[in-house]
Amino acid sequence: MNESEKLFHLYLISDSTGETINAVAKAVCARFEGARAIEHSYGLIRSSKQLDRALKAIESAPGPVLYSIVQPELSSRLEEACQSFDIPCISVLDPFVTILGSYLGVGLRGQPGRQNPMNKEYFERIAALNYTVSHDDGQNQHDLEEADIVLVGVSRTSKTPTCMYLANRGIKAANVPLVPGVSPTDDLMSLTKPLVIGLTASPDRLVQIRKNRLLSLNETGETDYIDPSYVKEETTEARRLFARKNWHVIDVTRRSIEETSAEILNIFQSRDEQEKGAL
């Protein structure tokens, strides 16, 4: 890091996945010379309780807020809190460049496209993608301890696409399938460093997805893989495992990959904040 570089906290708060404001933040921050943002993302903020965690973080380490929230009561509360903290609170429709420029007091960069530089973060993202690809579908479980996040679940619970999405955010994500009749490995069961999250879905939804998968492979025979009673037992056993290990559980039945990933990142950041607070 350049010693003359000005660091500042930047909070990105959204009632959706946060992808839009993340993109806006990168594009805007790239235009300022001599400053670098420490980003804090809070997605799926749809209640006062969920907003409380973000406000607590803002109060402890103040910095500008970029937000996208539809509910007037939540956006008003966020703006009022930021006003009391004496920090800018900017809607995605506001002139963010002007306000942030005033806050930072630094010059603008004239070079476009600086939001995607080949810097340390870029290479960390590539490393995360390489790790995720080599640890897909239960591969290379001997070094799962090196992962940031490990997703566990029965077949067709969106483990792989979710891991790839997380990897594109610089997260080393691995996934391990739960196979009926096969015990989880000791490598998985003994994890201490990674955040382990169990993904589940309704049996009816899983049966539908699995049938579509078999049709795409020109497989038309009846198997336990799509038998409703077997699938229900699979999901029940998975939930029992998650409960025994006290792993976080996310039901992906009605969630997009982006929504699931946003929730995982919320849990990951919350754990990181708790660990830092305990130091």
Rank of each mutant, 00 (worst) to 15 (best):
P72T: 09
I264L: 11
T20Q: 03
P64M: 03
E19S: 12
A278M: 14
G63R: 06
D224S: 14
A27V: 15
L129W: 04
I21A: 02
R125T: 15
S47A: 11
D137W: 04
T98N: 12
M189P: 09
E234T: 11
H9A: 12
V133Y: 07
T17I: 04
R31L: 11
V252R: 00
E222Y: 13
L74I: 13
D86W: 05
F8M: 04
E73S: 12
I267D: 01
F123A: 09
Y11C: 02
T220Q: 08
G138P: 08
V176R: 00
A167I: 07
R125G: 06
T160C: 01
S41N: 14
G110F: 03
L104N: 08
V252A: 10
K26C: 02
L265G: 00
P88L: 01
H9F: 05
I171W: 01
Q139H: 13
V154C: 11
P228N: 10
S16D: 05
S75V: 13
D272M: 11
L279N: 11
S256A: 04
N168M: 10
V152T: 10
L55W: 02
R46A: 11
H9G: 03
S47N: 06
R77G: 12
L51H: 08
G181N: 13
K6P: 01
E121A: 14
L214A: 11
Y67C: 08
L66P: 06
T253A: 02
D204I: 08
V182C: 05
E259F: 00
I90N: 01
I250R: 01
V106D: 04
L265P: 00
R239Y: 01
G43D: 03
A127S: 12
D52H: 12
I197A: 00
R271M: 04
R240G: 14
T192A: 13
K172T: 05
N22A: 07
G63W: 00
K245Q: 15
I267Q: 02
Q50A: 15
S84N: 10
A173M: 06
R169W: 07
D137G: 04
R213F: 11
Y11W: 02
S60G: 10
V70C: 09
Y165R: 15
Y230T: 15
N266T: 12
F242E: 04
L100M: 04
G43I: 06
A201Y: 06
R271H: 11
R210H: 10
M118G: 00
R240T: 12
S261R: 03
I58D: 02
I21S: 03
V150L: 04
S229N: 14
V196Y: 00
V179G: 03
W247Q: 08
C163M: 07
I226W: 01
R213W: 02
T162W: 02
D204E: 15
M1E: 13
Y230D: 08
L195Q: 05
K245R: 15
I126Q: 07
S102D: 15
S134H: 11
K49M: 09
V65I: 15
V97G: 05
Y122D: 06
G63A: 09
N246V: 09
R271E: 14
N130K: 13
I267C: 00
A30C: 10
H142G: 08
Q83T: 10
G198I: 08
